[in-house]
Design a protein around this nucleic acid. Structure first.
Lengths: 212, 212
DNA sequence: ATAATGCTCACGGTTTCTGGTGATTTTATT
DNA sequence: AATAAAATCACCAGAAACCGTGAGCATTAT
């Protein structure tokens, strides 16, 4: 199967567009249909060319990237949108997410990450660059990421899993054939080790670390 | 920046190796250093060639893919491992995860997904194919997916987010300038609407639905 | 052999959550 | 204007979680 991915690029910096093109143009899977210098021109281009993917700047004259993204997602939900900015900004990422953007990259990104993002959004996933995710203090799972190299014992992992399945202490104690006090000890040790203040933190850790 | 990704392929089906090669060999970013027909030969090849990525079958003679993965991750944690199987199996995925595999694909996968997976693991992420994730009944977030078309009010969403940030009721009431009773009402309504029995369920829903 | 870790259990006290029930006001929809 | 939904608040009682502290036993590593 050989699917050509059709792309348009929208950015008011000509130099940057050239950079993107140079990263993509020798790739047989990707075809660049055209470019535009602002959101308004982008809409026009997009209506004419019907791309699979739109790479768009966020700060642009006339129609900014967020409004542009909203337009695309409202009128052509199948077209994937990857937003690019020079610097991370949590508020902007939040707004882009609300606009249902599919990906978010920094302009300093390299070829591999760009291709990675394109392939990902084309296959129906999302891609948000690592820096963006870090920046997003609102991002639940990554926030307060200070539990570095903790190792949980097998028993602690068992308790953690059962906690994640919404089981209370009494039920866990029955299922593991240990006393309630012991379950509570494990839970306390888990919270201490992971530096969280309640079971919410435990669940977030478990999901983040793919324990469940 | 132009980084060549060095790959070895380990599989006891010669045909399959040829298939992978045909998908990758015209890609200037990827170099295939060699192939092996079982885990034991794979170890030998890997020690000699020092690849960036190992694509390995799971069911193999002599040394199976799980043991192989464990070996790689113990001795060369920087080498990325992507496991491939013909059919999904939750137990196997579980074991691979315990062995710290970086990616998991089905053999019927196409070029885009394969490249996607390679780029992803090279950039330090993991990649598990959609089918694999679905298969994993143990996967917390997918389990009991019966809360279909509930709609949460804006205020409920706010409360839910703050709950996810490990904030207790008193803190939430202060931040939203409402009484503790009100926060508790919202929380109760959330639990009722989503059909969960405690805040753990709320957090899981929030993460699953990308609310946080 | 000694130390460290993990697993087990206990007790008492405080805080928080859970569940039920009911009510008022505002906002949106029809 | 009437209805529905959302947001607000109250009270109470029981369940569960949180916190600290201490301790015995087995296994493993140094």
């Amino acid at each position: 199967m050989h699917t050509i991915i059709k792309v348009i690029i929208v950015d008011d910096h000509r130099m940057f567009i050239e950079g993107i093109i140079s990263l993509l143009d020798n790739n047989p899977d990707i075809e660049i249909l055209g470019t535009a210098a602002d959101g308004k021109a982008g809409i026009k281009l997009l209506e004419k060319e019907k791309p699979n993917v739109v790479l768009t700047d966020v700060e642009m004259p006339k129609v900014d990237g967020i409004t542009f993204t909203k337009y695309i997602k409202n009128h052509h939900p199948d077209i994937k949108v990857i937003a690019l900015t020079s610097h991370c900004n949590g508020t902007i990422i939040d707004k882009l997410k609300s606009a249902n953007v599919d990906g978010y990259l920094l302009k300093k990104t390299g070829k591999i990450e760009l291709l990675n993002a394109i392939y990902r959004v084309v296959s129906g996933h999302t891609y948000f660059t690592k820096e963006a995710v870090e920046e997003l203090k609102n991002s639940l799972l990554k926030a307060e990421g200070k539990n570095n190299d903790v190792t949980l014992s097998p028993r602690e992992l068992e308790v953690l899993k059962l906690i994640c399945y919404e089981k209370n202490t009494a039920t866990i104690s029955e299922e593991l054939h240990i006393s309630i006090n012991t379950v509570e000890s494990h839970r306390k040790n888990l919270m201490r080790k992971l530096g969280v203040k309640n079971m919410i933190g435990l669940v977030k850790y478990a999901i983040k670390e793919h324990i469940v």
